[in-house]
Simulated scan of single mutants.
Amino acid sequence: MLKLNIQNETSRLRAVVLGTAVSNGPVPSIEDAYDPKSIEHIKAGTYPKESDMVAEMEAVAKVFEKYDVKVYRPKIIEDYNQIFARDIALVIEDKFIKSNILPDREKEIVAIQHVINEIDPGKVYKAPTDDIHFEGGDIMIHNDHIFIGTYKGKDYPDCIVARTNMKGVEYIKSLFPNKTVKEFDLNKSMKDPRDNALHLDCCFQPVGKDKAIIHKEGFRDPLDYEYLVDFFGKENLFHIDKSEMYHMNSNIFSIAEDVVVSERNFTRLNTWLRSLNITVEEVPYAEIAKQEGLLRCSTMPLIRD
Rank of each mutant, 00 (worst) to 15 (best):
L2F: 15
K3H: 06
L13W: 02
V16C: 11
V17W: 01
G19P: 03
N24K: 13
G25P: 05
P26F: 11
V27A: 09
V27S: 05
P28D: 08
E31F: 11
D32V: 10
D32C: 08
D35K: 04
K37R: 12
S38D: 04
I39K: 15
H41N: 12
I42Q: 09
G45K: 09
K49M: 13
D52H: 13
E56L: 10
E56K: 09
E56A: 08
V63S: 08
F64G: 01
F64P: 01
K70G: 00
V71R: 04
V71P: 08
Y72Q: 00
Y72E: 02
I76M: 05
D79P: 03
Q82L: 12
I83T: 14
I83C: 14
F84R: 02
A85D: 03
R86P: 00
D87W: 00
I88W: 02
V91C: 02
E93K: 14
N100Q: 10
I101G: 13
I101H: 10
D104N: 13
E106N: 14
I109R: 02
I109Q: 12
V110C: 04
A111H: 10
A111L: 10
I112D: 00
V115S: 01
I116D: 00
I116C: 01
A127L: 05
T129G: 01
H133G: 00
H133E: 13
E135M: 07
G136V: 02
G137T: 10
H142E: 15
N143Y: 14
N143W: 09
H145D: 13
T150A: 06
K152M: 13
D158W: 09
C159G: 03
V161G: 00
R163S: 00
T164E: 07
M166I: 12
K167E: 15
K167Y: 06
V169S: 01
V169G: 00
E170Y: 11
T180R: 13
T180S: 12
V181W: 07
K182S: 11
K182R: 14
L186G: 06
L186P: 07
L186M: 13
K191F: 12
D192Q: 06
P193N: 04
R194E: 13
D195V: 08
N196E: 12
H199N: 09
D201R: 02
C202V: 14
F204L: 07
F204N: 04
K209A: 11
K211S: 13
I213G: 04
H215F: 14
H215K: 11
R220K: 15
L223C: 08
Y225D: 05
D230L: 07
L237V: 09
S243N: 12
E244C: 06
E244V: 08
M245V: 01
Y246S: 07
M248P: 01
S250P: 11
N251F: 06
S254F: 01
D258Q: 11
S262D: 08
N265S: 15
F266R: 10
T267I: 13
L269N: 03
R274A: 10
N277H: 15
I278Q: 03
T279W: 02
Y285Q: 06
Q291F: 05
L294M: 14
L295S: 03
L295D: 03
C297E: 05
C297R: 04
M300P: 02
L302V: 02
I303M: 07
R304E: 02
R304N: 03
D305C: 02
